[in-house]
Computed example of a mutant assay.
Amino acid sequence: MLSYCTNVHPAEDLDGVRAQLAEHAAPIRKKLDVDVLGVGLWLAADVAEQLSADPGAVRGLKSELDGLGLAAVTFNAFPHRGFHDPVVKHRVYEPRWTEPQRLHHTLRCAEILAALLPEGGRGSISTLPLGWRTPWTTRDEDAARRNLDRAAAGLRELEDRTGRRVRLAVEPEPGCLLDTVADALAWLPGCDTDYIGLCLDTCHLAVSFADPAATVRAITGSGVDVVKVQASAALHVDDPAAARGELARYAEPRYLHQVRERTAEGVRCCDDLPQAFDELPGTGPWRVHFHVPVHWAAEGPVRPTTDVLRDALAALADPLPDVEVETYTWNVLPEPPEDLADGIAAELRFTRRLLDERSTR
């Protein structure tokens, strides 16, 4: 089921989650004129703890979702808390998979998702690619392996107990331990791939300058499943020197915006957009980790990497995994929308068209 990720909404308590469903998700469903809208829930750590301790509250949330015509089909457990703080940056990668808090939060989310899934549904949970790349030691490597093994064992036990399968989707991201899909494919086969697979974020894929169709072919031959697709778009600019003024409008203080430049010698890297202006040569095209609306039809030097999203979806085999539109940056865009629901509905219509085009090929 196609869904959108609710991490775009700043809610870090249960009342806030309920409010965002009623005030945002339900109006989006009505704008789309569909009987049921998929939502990819983001539950901050405190909300997940509250729900996991109160089965009645989970049943109440399920009832509210049903009444609003919403279906929770996937969770985004990458951000732990504070995702809409004034400055997030590197803190979004904490706690790492080396720490018990990450394991605990993920299994709490899985328990809740299993209870919210539609009858006969499967579930997916996207998570961070181990952590930021530094610091990292062999001891960290061993700890991350152990915790992911424990996560897989917990998901297996959850399925045995509830009959609901929830799988973990590790999401490569520029600058992290698993920076690219290739990094993830080298690491993940050591996990229990019945319960741990890949989250293919098409913004992150674009930033890496990887060929989307070739990447999907590599995944297909790896023994690792794409458990979830995050339909998203990065910024692309052919001439960053000429477009510096336009690019600078996206250098906002809340989130990290990794930059990659393609040169004749290979891809050069910078960890955030403000530094990229000084640290990268600016002679080749740039891709910037800034999730812009996937339907955006920009005119000018800066454009979205919609072609990467289209080509990645076209290359995936049936049955498709969960597809979740994840544009969490609406509120930090240079020109935020007057009506957020209109914007998200337009993204979902656009992504649905891409999926329909795919089915006719």
Rank of each mutant, 00 (worst) to 15 (best):
M1N: 00
S3F: 04
H9E: 08
H9N: 12
P10A: 10
D13N: 15
Q20A: 02
Q20Y: 05
H24S: 10
A25L: 01
P27I: 00
D35L: 06
Q50T: 15
Q50M: 09
S52T: 14
P55R: 02
P55K: 01
G56L: 01
G60D: 14
L61N: 07
L65K: 09
D66H: 03
L70H: 11
F75V: 12
A77Y: 03
F78C: 02
P79L: 00
H80V: 09
R81H: 12
G82W: 04
G82A: 09
H84T: 12
D85S: 15
V92T: 14
R96L: 04
R96C: 08
W97L: 13
R102A: 12
H104L: 06
L107Y: 10
C109W: 02
C109I: 10
G121A: 13
G121S: 02
R122S: 13
R133A: 15
R133I: 08
T134Q: 15
T137A: 05
D140V: 10
E141C: 05
D142C: 09
N147A: 06
A151H: 11
A151S: 09
E157F: 07
E159I: 07
D160I: 04
R161D: 11
V170G: 03
V170C: 03
V170Y: 03
E171Y: 07
A182K: 14
A182Q: 12
D183L: 09
L185D: 07
C191M: 15
C199L: 08
D201F: 05
T202L: 05
V207M: 06
A214E: 13
R217Y: 03
I219L: 03
S222E: 08
V229C: 12
V237W: 05
V237C: 11
D238F: 07
P240R: 10
E246P: 13
R249S: 12
P253C: 00
P253H: 02
E261N: 13
C269L: 04
C269R: 15
L273N: 03
V288D: 01
E299R: 14
G300D: 06
V302F: 07
L309P: 03
A314F: 04
L316N: 10
A317F: 04
P319A: 06
P319R: 09
L320F: 05
P321M: 03
V325P: 14
E326T: 09
L333M: 04
L333T: 01
P334T: 02
P334D: 02
E347T: 09
L348D: 08
L354K: 00
D356F: 02
E357F: 01
R361N: 09
